[in-house]
Simulated assay, not measured.
Amino acid sequence: MANPWAGEVAVWLDGHRHVAKLTLGALAELETELAAGSLIELVERFEAARFSTRDVLALLVAGLRGGGWQGEAKDLRTVEIGGGPVEAARVAAELLARAFAVPGTK
């Protein structure tokens, strides 16, 4: 089970449950991948609904890697994500929210 207090979010890939979380290393990888000036810029894009599918994909990859997954972005191009693109975007936003939330305030 995903532990929201640890920043974890469940992601279903081809019917298999994975745990994703944005560790410090995953956040650094994400910043590099998206060439964002800061992670706050990325959070603001999600809050304003100005995110791209590239943002969603990069967040999912970083989160899955933070959860121990060994795949790469290209691996997600051929899997079925449980809930489809809308759920993928929701999971990406949840990963960001949990990475920056203070426990007990959400």
Rank of each mutant, 00 (worst) to 15 (best):
I40V: 15
A35P: 00
L27G: 09
E94P: 00
A49L: 14
D14S: 12
L95G: 02
L24H: 12
T23E: 03
A28I: 08
V56Q: 05
M1T: 05
H16F: 07
T32K: 14
E31Y: 00
D75G: 05
D55V: 02
L24T: 14
Q70N: 12
N3Y: 08
A20N: 07
L42N: 02
L22R: 06
E33W: 07
K74F: 10
E8W: 05
F51R: 10
M1C: 04
A28Q: 15
V56E: 00
L24E: 14
A101K: 04
R65G: 03
L57I: 10
I81E: 05
E8L: 05
G104F: 02
E31F: 00
G68H: 05
W12I: 14
L30D: 07
P85L: 12
G25K: 13
G84I: 05
G7W: 00
Q70L: 15
N3R: 12
H18A: 02
V61H: 01
L76D: 04
A49H: 13
V86H: 09
A99L: 02
R54Q: 13
V61D: 01
E41Y: 05
V61Q: 00
I40E: 09
E80M: 07
V11L: 11
L39P: 01
G15V: 05
E80D: 13
T78E: 12
G83D: 07
L42T: 13
L64G: 09
A73E: 13
W69L: 11
V86F: 04
G83Y: 08
G15R: 10
T32W: 09
R90K: 15
T105Q: 12
L76H: 00
Q70A: 15
H18M: 03
V61I: 04
T32A: 15
A20S: 10
A10L: 14
V79S: 07
R98I: 03
R50M: 08
V43W: 09
E87L: 07
A6E: 14
R54W: 03
E31R: 14
D14I: 01
A26N: 08
N3V: 06
A92L: 11
L27Y: 01
L27T: 05
E41R: 12
F46N: 11
K21A: 10
V91F: 01
E44A: 11
L13I: 11
R65Y: 04
H16G: 03
W5G: 00
M1W: 03
L30F: 08
F51C: 01
I40G: 04
E72L: 09
A2D: 11
A2P: 13
G37C: 04
R54T: 12
G37R: 15
A28R: 13
L57M: 15
T32D: 13
L59V: 09
G7S: 06
K74E: 15
V9C: 05
R45D: 13
F46L: 11
A101H: 08
V91L: 02
F51W: 14
I81D: 06
V43N: 06
P85N: 03
E94W: 03
G66A: 05
A89F: 04
H16D: 14
G84M: 08
A88V: 09
L13E: 08
V61K: 01
F46T: 09
K106M: 06
R77Y: 12
L34R: 14
R45I: 03
W5S: 08
T105P: 00
A28D: 14
E31C: 02
F100E: 00
V79E: 09
F46D: 04
A10T: 13
E47C: 06
A62N: 07
L30C: 03
G7R: 07
G104E: 06
R50E: 14
